[in-house]
Design a protein around this nucleic acid. Structure first.
Lengths: 209, 209
DNA sequence: GGTAAACTGACCTTGCGAGTCAAATTGTGG
DNA sequence: CCACAATTTGACTCGCAAGGTCAGTTTACC
């Protein structure tokens, strides 16, 4: 199987071959891109475009001139912001031999990334369904979820009543609480990750007190 | 120990002894109360006051005249909307002999109530911190959380790294996902409740694949 | 320097519900 | 049945924040 999401970003929404840009426009586009990467990394994909503009040293209007708005800007930088890391996790997960460890690694890694990168939260929540690359990432997610759950069940490491949809919801809810809740301490967050994992692992007590 | 939250509602924000109300005002107050109970039950405490007014057959202004706004209205009906059920759960939980079963019952019951009653979600999320009765309910929650975790740990039914704060966060996150996410099917929701419970139960695999 | 490209930032827009208040209505006591 | 206070009404204002627009100005390029 090829690497995950190999071509998310062929000519994303920005500066294809079209009429050549003037030097200042070219320069601004690049500064906006850089600013966007920083801002999206630091504050998530929902950061006000005015912030991005300020960091880039241009005015809001210029972002619209160069990228026609947030979606275009996202397409132009999503690779650097989250896609690379996300797909790396997916690839690493697939490369794990024991199916039982795959899911454990995957959930831990995604939860970690969600904690560190607000943009991943926005991605998982599908905050901008109009962005094609964002949706492509989500599709890749759904795919591996199916795989992981199938493999986990088959090898008996995963409780049998746990579905791919449960996994999807688990990560989605995880994103929701980071988005709308109070950011927990890192160690609390990690401990809760293990609680979650243990809850979906096979061989449960379930009935007893 | 006395029953939980015995006197949340001594003269909540509405119609105390003050100057006697005119007949129509009295009637309206009662209709608004009834409408509010319905609306809060059906759509949560955040339902637009205009909806309540419509159901009550009065105009928005009248709600302000009679209850001085949402907070006053909440104080006036919170008992019927959520307090009674919530305190009943707390009492029933305390009456359970085996400490191991207490927490299991409690979490299941609260999750169930959150699912059925959007108003409980708003309560847990402390959407209206200015409402005294709402905050009283939250305090009662915190109290029993401490008790339950202490008891659960003591009897060995609860994993030792699970804190009262974890319990608090668990229910808070649960509320958040109901508030901001897509409402899951009832049976999916219940299954996930058992996953959660199994994750915080003692004797975990944790390390293995 | 002339011209088209590009930038700028003030301004308009959107959305929604809380809360207000002058004018209209209605209950009440006499 | 009236006078008048109590009450209701619903149109209006407010807040708030970000997205998006465009006339006017500046800048790159030949």
């Amino acid at each position: 199987m090829a690497k995950a999401g190999e071509a998310v970003n062929d000519m994303a929404g920005a500066a294809p071959s079209e009429p050549r840009l003037r030097a200042d426009a070219e320069r601004n586009a690049e500064q906006i891109r850089r600013a966007a990467i920083d801002a999206f990394r630091g504050r998530g994909l929902t950061v006000p475009l005015e912030e991005v503009a300020k960091v880039a040293g241009v005015s809001k209007g210029t972002i619209f001139n160069r990228f026609s708005g947030r979606i275009g800007l996202i397409e132009a930088v999503i690779e650097e912001v989250v896609a690379t890391e996300l797909y790396a996790i997916i690839d690493r997960t697939r490369s794990i031999a024991e199916p039982g460890k795959q899911l454990r690694y995957y959930v831990t890694a995604i939860r970690d990334l969600q904690y560190r990168q607000p943009a991943v939260v926005d991605t998982v929540l599908q905050t901008y369904p109009d962005s094609k690359s964002l949706m492509a990432i989500c599709r890749a997610g759904t795919e591996i979820h199916d795989e992981l759950v199938a493999a986990g069940r088959a090898c008996g490491a995963l409780r049998s009543d746990f579905t791919a949809d449960d996994l999807h919801v688990l990560l989605h809810d995880s994103a929701l609480t980071l988005k709308h809740g109070t950011r927990p301490q890192r160690d609390d967050y990690d401990r809760r990750t293990t609680h979650l994992l243990d809850g979906i692992h096979a061989q449960q007590p379930t009935a007893a007190g």
